[in-house]
Design a protein around this nucleic acid. Structure first.
Length: 730
DNA sequence: TACATCTTTATTTTT
DNA sequence: TAAAGATGTA
C-alpha cells in the first residue's frame, strides 16, 4: 500500500525509510537524497500508522531545511502540518519554553537576543563591572559564554584555570543575572533552558518522551554537546531516533559542533546497523572520484565512498594563475563560454574560503556586465532601522528589556545623552528595577528631562495600542510614535531604510502566526530566530558567489573553487587548531561535491589581501586530487628566469609528482620588476642559524619592515624580519 | 551631540 | 583594502 512512496528509492534508501522502530544512524553522502529519505520516512511512518503526525519530532539546523521538509511532506500526503513538531533546535526549544515558561523560570513574553543583541548586552555587563575591555573584548566574552552554554555548562560549574578565566566566569555570571532580570534569552540559552526544563521536570519529560515515539534529526554531524544531551533527554527508551548526517561534511566545529556525536550516538542509542547512502545523484564520476580521493586523507572517518551511475564526465579543470586578477579574468572568460553554451548563470557558483576574496571576483564580473549575487550580506531583520523598530515593539511587549530601551531611548535623537543614561542606569541597578521604570522616577537636566518624558509617553501610547489593533497596524503605529519613519524620510540617503521599514509593516501584516503565542510575541520570536534571507542580488539569472560554508547543501552545474592556496585554503589559522586541517579538508570536500558537471579548481601565485600582496603556494588540496582526473592550464608562459623554484621544493613533499606547470611571476614588492635590492625571492631555498633550511613562501613589507615567511623543513612555517633574521641562500 | 579623524584589525556562521 | 570602533573637535 506504500508503493507510491517507496517507488524510485534505491535499496539503501528504502531500508532507511522502512526501518522498524529502533534507533538508526544514516550516513548520507553528499547528493545521496538525504532529504528525500527523511521526508519519505515520516510519510511512511504516518501512512503505515506506526505514528501519528503529532507523535513525530523532526529537527533541523536551519529554517530553510525545516521549511523544505514541511513543503515536501505536504506534497506527499494531505496532512495538517499544524501541530507537527518540525523545526530547528532553536525554534522547537522556543516553543517548549513558551509553553512552559513558568517552570522554566521565564516571563511569558521573554525576548530572544540575536548575536548582535547578545554582544551589546555583554558590553553593558562589562561596563557595569568596570572591566578592562581591552583585555576582555565583548566578542571574546561572548565566545566564552556561548562555548560553555553549548557544552551545557553554567557559570557556577566552570572551573577557572587562571586569572583570565576567573574573570570570564565573573562576566558569565553577571550576564546570566542581567538576562534573567531583563527577561531575555540568547540562542544558546534557548537550548540550555529547555534542556534544564526537561532534566529537572520528570512529569514534563515523561510527557514529551511519551509523545514523540519517533525523533528524526537532520545534519547530525553538526550537533553540539548540548543538543545531543537534549535529544537524549527527550528520547524515551522506546523512542526511535533516526539520525541522518555525514561526518565528512562536518565543517562547524568552530561553533561547537561535535562530529564525535555520531559515534557516541551509535553506541549510546544501541544502533544495530549503520545505513550508508553512497549512491550520488548529483555529480559525474570524475568529480566524485576527486572528492573520494581528497577525503581519504582524513583519519577517523566513519567511512563512505560515493559512486554514481552517471559517466565519468568532464575532467576537472585546474587553473594556476599568476595574480588574483588573472584568476578572476580566467573565471570570467570561462563563464562567458559556459553561458554562451546555454548554461544559466544561476547554475554557476564561485566559491571561496573567506568573504574578502569576493572583491576581485565581483570587480571582474561587474566589468564583464554579468549579473551576480553575493551571499553573506545583512539580512532583513538585522538591518539597523529594522532593529530599531523591533526595539520599540519589544518595549511595548516587555518593560524589562533594557537592551531595547537603550537602543532607542535616544534614537531618533531627543537630547538624552550619556550622562543622563548613566544616572538612569545607576538608579535602575541600585533599586533592581528596569530602566524604563527608573527613567520615569528620576530627575534629569532640562532638555533630557523633556526628552525622556516624551519618550516614555510614546512608549506608553504604543503599549496602549497593543492588544487593540492588528499586528500590522501596531508596527505602523510603532514607526509613527517612534518618529523612525519621519526621521529616515527626512534623511538624504534614507530612502532604502524607509523602504525596509515599510516592508517590515507588510511583513507584520501578512505574518501568519501558527503558534499558540500572541501575535506580537510570535512575530518578535520570528524576527530573532529567522532573520530572513541573505541579501538578494540582481535579476533572476545571476551568478552565485558565496563562501564554501554557505554553499553546503546547494548544488550547481558548474563550480569554481577559487583561491586554492596554502594559507588561504587551507586557512593558516586552521593549522594551529586541532583537527583544523582535517576540517579544512572536509570543507574542500563540501566545495567539490557541490558540482554536477564541471568543476574548476583555481589558485593564484599572488593575491591582494588586507591591502598587501601575499604570495601563496598551491594548496595541498589540489595535490590531493588525482592528476589523471585533471586538466591543468595556466596563464600564457612567462619567461623562465622569473620562475621561482618553489615548485621544485613543493613537489618533493609527500604525495606525488606534479604535472607540467606554467610558471608564476614571483618577486617581492608586487611586481615582476620591483624586487631590486631585496636579497631573496619567493621559492628560494634559505638557511637559518637556528631553524635550519627552508623555503621562502611569502614576503611582505619594504626595507626595514620587510618580513618573509619561511617554511623550514624541521621547524615549520615562520615569519621572520629580514632586518634581524640571519638568513642566507642555501 | 554630531561629525571628523585616527587606530586597529582582518576565517568560516546558524540560530 | 576597508570596515568598525575609539577618540578628538566644533
Amino acid at each position: 500500500m506504500d508503493d507510491t512512496l517507496l517507488a524510485g528509492l534505491n535499496p539503501e534508501q528504502r531500508a532507511a525509510v522502512t526501518l522498524p522502530r529502533e534507533s538508526a544512524l544514516v550516513l548520507a553522502g553528499a547528493g545521496s537524497g538525504k532529504t528525500r529519505v527523511l521526508t519519505t520516512r515520516i510519510a511512511h511512518l504516518i501512512r503505515t500508522r506506526q505514528a501519528s503526525p503529532l507523535g513525530i519530532l523532526a529537527v533541523t539546523f536551519t529554517n530553510k531545511a525545516a521549511r523544505e521538509m514541511m513543503t515536501r511532506l505536504a506534497g506527499m500526503m494531505p496532512i495538517n502540518t499544524r501541530g507537527m513538531w518540525v523545526g530547528t533546535f532553536h525554534g522547537l526549544c522556543n516553543r517548549l519554553l513558551r509553553a512552559h515558561h513558568r517552570e522554566a523560570g521565564l516571563p511569558s513574553l521573554f525576548q530572544i537576543l540575536d548575536s548582535q543583541d547578545q554582544q551589546a548586552a555583554i558590553k553593558r555587563v562589562l561596563r557595569a563591572m568596570g572591566a578592562d575591555e581591552e583585555r576582555y573584548p565583548a566578542r571574546q566574552v561572548a565566545f566564552f559564554i556561548n562555548g560553555n552554554k553549548d557544552d551545557g555548562v553554567r557559570a557556577a560549574q566552570v572551573n577557572p584555570w587562571d586569572a583570565a578565566s576567573r574573570a570570564m566566569v565573573g562576566f558569565y555570571q553577571a550576564y546570566e543575572a542581567q538576562c534573567q532580570r531583563e527577561g531575555v534569552v540568547d540562542f544558546a540559552e534557548l537550548l540550555l533552558r529547555s534542556y534544564e526544563l526537561l532534566r529537572d521536570n520528570d512529569m514534563l519529560r515523561a510527557h514529551y518522551a511519551d509523545r514523540f515515539g519517533f525523533i528524526l534529526v537532520d545534519e547530525f554531524q553538526d550537533t553540539n554537546r548540548l543538543q545531543y544531551e537534549w535529544l537524549k533527554l527527550l528520547a524515551a527508551p522506546t523512542s526511535a531516533v533516526f539520525a541522518v548526517g555525514d561526518d565528512d561534511q562536518s565543517i562547524y566545529a568552530f561553533r561547537g559542533a561535535r562530529v564525535g556525536n555520531m559515534r557516541l550516538f551509535e553506541t549510546e542509542f544501541k544502533v544495530r546497523q549503520v545505513i550508508r547512502l553512497e549512491q550520488n545523484y548529483r555529480s559525474q564520476g570524475n568529480i566524485l572520484d576527486a572528492a573520494n580521493a581528497l577525503i581519504s586523507n582524513n583519519s577517523g572517518r566513519l567511512g563512505k565512498n560515493l559512486w554514481t551511475e552517471a559517466g565519468q564526465g568532464e575532467p576537472i579543470r585546474v587553473y594556476e594563475a599568476g595574480t588574483d586578477m588573472d584568476e578572476a579574468g580566467f573565471i570570467v572568460e570561462e563563464i562567458r563560454a559556459l553561458h554562451g553554451e546555454g548554461m544559466h548563470l544561476s547554475d554557476i557558483a564561485l566559491l571561496y574560503r573567506s568573504n574578502a576574496q569576493s572583491r576581485v571576483l565581483e570587480q571582474f564580473i561587474f566589468n564583464a556586465g554579468l549579473p551576480y549575487r553575493v551571499y553573506g550580506g545583512l539580512r532583513f531583520f538585522e538591518r539597523l532601522e529594522v532593529k530599531h523598530a523591533l526595539a520599540w515593539l519589544r518595549l511595548a511587549a516587555s518593560p524589562d528589556d533594557d537592551g531595547a530601551f537603550l537602543r532607542v531611548v535616544n534614537f531618533p535623537p531627543r537630547g538624552i545623552g550619556a550622562r543622563s543614561l548613566e544616572l538612569v542606569q545607576q538608579q535602575a541597578i541600585s533599586q533592581g528595577i528596569p530602566m524604563t521604570v527608573a527613567a520615569a522616577g528620576i530627575k534629569l537636566a532640562g532638555k533630557a528631562a523633556s526628552g525622556m518624558a516624551d519618550f516614555l509617553a510614546r512608549v506608553a501610547q504604543l503599549r496602549d495600542v497593543r492588544g487593540r489593533v492588528e499586528l500590522g497596524e501596531l508596527v505602523e503605529e510603532a514607526l509613527r510614535l517612534s518618529g523612525l519613519l519621519a526621521h529616515y524620510q527626512a534623511e538624504r540617503d534614507g530612502a532604502e531604510r524607509v523602504e525596509n521599514l515599510e516592508e517590515l509593516v507588510s511583513a507584520a501584516a501578512s505574518f501568519n502566526n501558527d503558534s499558540e503565542l500572541d501575535d506580537l510575541a510570535a512575530f518578535l520570536s520570528h524576527a530573532s530566530l529567522e532573520a530572513g534571507e541573505r541579501e538578494a542580488g540582481a535579476g533572476q539569472d545571476a551568478l552565485q558567489l558565496m563562501t564554501v560554508h554557505s554553499a553546503k547543501g546547494l548544488e550547481f552545474h558548474a563550480v569554481f573553487v577559487t583561491g586554492l592556496e596554502e594559507g588561504l585554503f587551507p586557512h593558516e589559522n586552521s593549522l594551529s587548531e586541532n583537527d583544523g586541517l582535517e576540517e579544512e579538508r572536509r570543507l574542500m570536500y563540501v566545495a567539490v561535491t557541490r558540482a554536477r558537471q564541471r568543476l574548476y579548481l583555481t589558485r593564484s601565485g599572488s593575491r591582494m589581501l588586507h591591502g598587501q600582496i601575499r604570495y601563496g603556494l598551491r594548496s595541498r588540496f589540489i595535490d590531493e586530487v588525482p592528476e589523471n582526473l585533471c586538466r591543468f592550464t595556466g596563464p600564457v608562459q612567462q619567461t623562465p628566469r622569473d620562475f621561482p623554484s618553489a615548485w621544485a621544493t613543493h613537489r618533493e613533499e609527500p604525495g606525488r609528482g606534479q604535472p607540467i606547470r606554467t610558471p608564476l611571476p614571483g618577486s617581492f614588492g608586487g611586481g615582476p620588476s620591483s624586487d631590486a635590492g631585496l636579497p631573496f625571492r619567493i621559492g628560494q631555498n634559505v638557511k637559518h642559524a637556528r631553524f635550519g633550511s627552508g623555503v621562502i613562501l611569502a614576503a611582505e613589507g619594504q626595507g626595514e619592515d620587510a618580513r618573509v615567511q619561511v617554511n623550514f623543513r624541521d621547524a615549520g612555517t615562520k615569519w621572520l624580519a629580514l632586518a634581524y633574521a640571519k638568513l642566507s641562500a642555501d
